[in-house]
Write a protein that binds this DNA or RNA. Sequence first.
DNA 1: CCAGAATGTTTCTAACTTGAATGTTTCTAG
DNA 2: CTAGAAACATTCAAGTTAGAAACATTCTGG
Lengths: 142, 142
Amino acid sequence: MTTPPEPRAIAERELCGLVNALAQRIAEHIRTRAGALGLTAAQATALREMTGPMTMRELAGRMSCEPSNATFVIDKLEKQGLVERRAHPTDRRAKHLVLTAEGGELRERLLALLTEGSPLAGLAPEQQRALQDLLEQAIPRD
Amino acid sequence: MTTPPEPRAIAERELCGLVNALAQRIAEHIRTRAGALGLTAAQATALREMTGPMTMRELAGRMSCEPSNATFVIDKLEKQGLVERRAHPTDRRAKHLVLTAEGGELRERLLALLTEGSPLAGLAPEQQRALQDLLEQAIPRD
DNA sequence: CCAGAATGTTTCTAACTTGAATGTTTCTAG
DNA sequence: CTAGAAACATTCAAGTTAGAAACATTCTGG
C-alpha cells in the first residue's frame, strides 16, 4: 500500500543509476590515464575536447560543466604552457583558447592512452552506434 | 597528417562525452528536485538507493562513490533524523542503515518528484529498455 | 544615440569528493 | 589457538565543483 507498484518509474530510476555508474567508470578511466601524464581528470577532459580554437563557454559546454569551472581548469593548463588565452577575433568579451605546440603534442599522447582499455570496449561497434543514437535522442538539442 | 583518421577511436570519445553529458543532466535534475526538499543531490541519491536496510559499503556501491563519501552523506541524513545507523545483525564491523519513518516518507515524496520531468523522458519505454541492456553490457559485472 | 537586457568571463565561497591513513572486527593458515 | 591478512567504517587533508555576485562587452528597442 505504501508502494503502488509503478514499474515504469522504477525502471527509470535504475537507468539513472546505470548511466551514472558508466559515467563514473569513464571518469575513473580518464583519471588513471591522465595521471600517467601528470594531468587531472578535468584537465584531460578539457584537452580531449579541445579539437580546435574555441571559447571558454563552448569548452564548458563540451565538458558539461559550469564556465567557472572551465576557468579553473584552463588556469592550470595555461600555467603548464599547454593552452593559451588569446583575444577573440570578433568578440572582445570572449577569450579564444588555442593549444600550444606542446599542448597539441600532449593531447595526441593522451588520446592514444585513452583509447586503449576503454570502458566501452565491452560493446561491439554497432552497439556503440546504437548507444550513441539513444543518448543523442535522450539529450535535448542545445 | 597529424591525425591518422581513426574513426573508431573518435566515435568512442564522442560516446564518452555523451554518457557524461547525460549523467550531468540527470545530476542537475536531481539537484533541483532535491533542493525543493532541502536535500543536496548526494543526499537525494543516497535516499533513492535506500531500497531497504543495507551496509555502508553497499550504499557506496549503489551510489557509485567511495565509502568515505557515503560516511559523509549518511552523517547528514542521520543528523536530519532520516536514517539510522544500527548494529549489523551478523557482522560487528558493519553498520546497518535503516530509514526512519520520517525518512521513508520523505523518500516517497522524493521519488515522486524525481519521476516527473525526467531527463529520460525523451525515450520511449522500449528505447529505455534497449539503453538499459546496452549499459548493463558495458558495465562489467561487479 | 542611449538605456537596459543579455552575454562572456572571472572571483569567491561553500560544499562535495577522493585517497591515504587509522581503528576495529573477521577470516585463514599454520 | 593465534598471528597475519583482509574487510568495514571513519577521519583527515587536498583537490574539485557548482552557484551567486561582479565586471566588461555586446545587443536591442526606442
